[in-house]
Design a protein around this nucleic acid. Structure first.
Lengths: 221, 221, 221, 221
DNA sequence: GATGAATGAGGGTTCATTCAT
DNA sequence: TATGAATGAACCCTCATTCAT
């Protein structure tokens, strides 16, 4: 009589399964709402393994958000835009950012939970901080080139702009449930989602682009 | 030795103290992270009273968000803008919304937590839903009047615009900790905050206002 | 504006209402299962009054069973049978006992609960003990007279007989729910109840009455 | 200093120990009076294990009464009597039933508590219902054979008879404390107990057996 | 490496009881 | 006398974590 082989002893795969299950659970319930038991069950792994591999629930959460941010940044692929002309580059950047959120929806509740915990885990991760190092430069590069070409206004703060782009791209996702109730509109149905992407692109472009009036004022200075 | 000062028997006041303490705790730790014990201690109330007055932790949370949204809406005072000319009105609306969040900072983590729970409590509250009824109309009123006067573009979706305004006004607050780490910038220091307000006002105005180019295109149609 | 008068301040009546409510609750849920709150609500009385009048939940329970036993004994009216001839007297006694239980159904779960508590309250009540003093004498009187007349067997233990009568009259009531499940028969429907009364009367009579065989054996001794 | 001896990790044994402790506690205090903490302590088990194995206090109670009824039925061994002649068989049946209660004394308060809860747990247990399926048949078998042989009366209701037997065998046990107080007699001392067994046997026999007078009446019909 | 069993520290909730008016 | 407010001690149950095999 052979015992049913649960799974080959493959620590890498087990670790991966746990991470996936944890990502789903933490995204669904938050750090405090998620249950280690449930994560183990979802991963079809023994609960003890979580502690072997990740040390603690907090350690697991840390690993989860590290990976989630990593994947977000990969999906964002912002370096692409340095090769594009400023206007197209800015649009591309916005679209890439928007898509990055859509394709990695877990990141949004994970970030919510992490902020409730005052970025305790994020702060500990040098890896993640480095991941975001190039980002401001990318924006600055676009803005600078755009200003030089006279297509963008010259006095735009890249941090403010980036924060705004991320706000516009993610707030309606993270707050979709309350917004649905308050505005009586489902924001995440496909049609609305497409409309929103265009809206954001439009908003950003109108913000960065120089108008005739701007140009006039600029000249007078 | 002095006896500890007991609270006078005043149910209204006790209820209020519990609500205040719960608001603080839920805002700080979320629904799942908050502890009823801690709330009671903070309110200097007996734990049982929470159950007498609010029925359950969930009931308390419901009461907390109901009041928080109520106060947010009161602070927003959006009806004011219906008396203003469109351009000034839109600016006022943005500033009021921004200030409403700054003056009621608890609403943001509370909303985060509520969204993690898929707006379960919000959905149950007819009171809150009604509170937001006038809002889309306010925006529509501004946009319509602005378009009639030729100062705003005519084809702006009021829902998208409102969502964007709220996004811009609140995302950097709710995500201030992660943004600080990732962007290496404190976003909530007073200077930055003021700068952000102007940035948002600017962004919204540039979005809604008709440019010469818009006007030209419009005419040609 | 006149405040609605809840109830005239009539301590006797209030006490009575509390006692009635408590009897119902204790009968339904037992001493441990009953809730003081629920009793107060049922009596439309303030909870504190229970403590004013009865001292504690235990004191209330004590009062409840005292009254319940008192009423049971009143309904039993066993003294009647001393005037009847033995055979008719015994039948009457059984029927009175059976009816006493049917007419005071609370006594049965109350006694159950009291026995779970090892008759703690009963033991404290001299009043109740005295109430039952005449009972064995009644049985003995019947048995003695019956034996003298040659209609009853002479060697019947009155205590055993009384215990048996009470057993037969009350067990199927106190255990009606489990018996219904186990025997797949509803024992408390009216038809069954009447049948059971006759069954018990029959059983007791056959037990006490002298048969020809008894008489023969008796003579030979 | 010796370390406290921990139990070896044996879930079957632990489960058994919990069940035994719970049986004792529930029998002693009833479902509502028993404390999960106390059960755990008595079983020298961690409280959590109770929930691991039995789900809830109610689930534990259910398991307890299921086992108690099972053991009662095993002790009753009523199938034996189908091989005996009716008179001896009936006596044996009564004695087995009586002994089953004496040897499984927990069943009586457990049944009391269960009836207070309206057989809620019993009703859920198909296993127990099936356990009692053969019982009425056993009685019917005895009565039928006895009637055929002319030793028993022919018109006896087996359900009434069984209920009476169980009443006579268990009531004085379940109500021993109140009866002791009311009748000023200890019913459970060994001597009394033996006397009661004979009393019950006698009572049942006199009830089922045909007397000369019965025979005469029967013939005349 | 992997697992089922076990643990202790709370978590939310309830309850009998008392206080203050 | 009567009441609503308040209390503290549990109570059932859950959770993150560790042990023993």
């Amino acid at each position: 009589m052979t015992k049913p082989v649960k799974r080959p002893r493959n620590s890498a795969q087990t670790k991966e399964l746990i991470l996936a299950a944890a990502t789903a659970e933490f995204a669904r319930r938050g750090l405090d709402g998620a249950r280690v038991d449930q994560i183990a069950k979802r991963a079809r792994a023994n609960k003890t393994l979580i502690y072997t591999y990740f040390g603690s629930k907090d350690g697991l959460f840390q690993a989860v958000i590290e990976r989630a941010y990593q994947e977000l940044r990969q999906a964002q692929r912002d370096l692409i835009v340095r090769h594009l002309d400023p206007d197209a580059g800015m649009e591309k950047f916005v679209r890439l950012t928007y898509r990055a959120f859509l394709d990695n929806p877990e990141i949004i509740p994970l970030a919510s939970s992490e902020n409730l915990h005052r970025a305790r885990h994020l702060g500990k991760s040098k890896k993640i901080r480095e991941l975001f190092d190039p980002l401001p430069e990318t924006i600055t590069d676009l803005l600078t080139r755009g200003a030089q070409e006279g297509v963008f206004r010259p006095d735009i703060d890249p941090i403010d702009l980036y924060v705004s782009i991320v706000s516009l791209c993610s707030y309606h996702i993270s707050n979709q449930y309350s917004l649905s109730v308050l505005l009586k509109t489902k924001l995440m149905i496909p049609e609305r989602r497409r409309q929103r992407e265009e809206h954001i692109v439009d908003m950003v472009r109108r913000f960065v682009c120089q108008t005739d009036r701007d140009a006039a004022r600029q000249k007078s200075v």
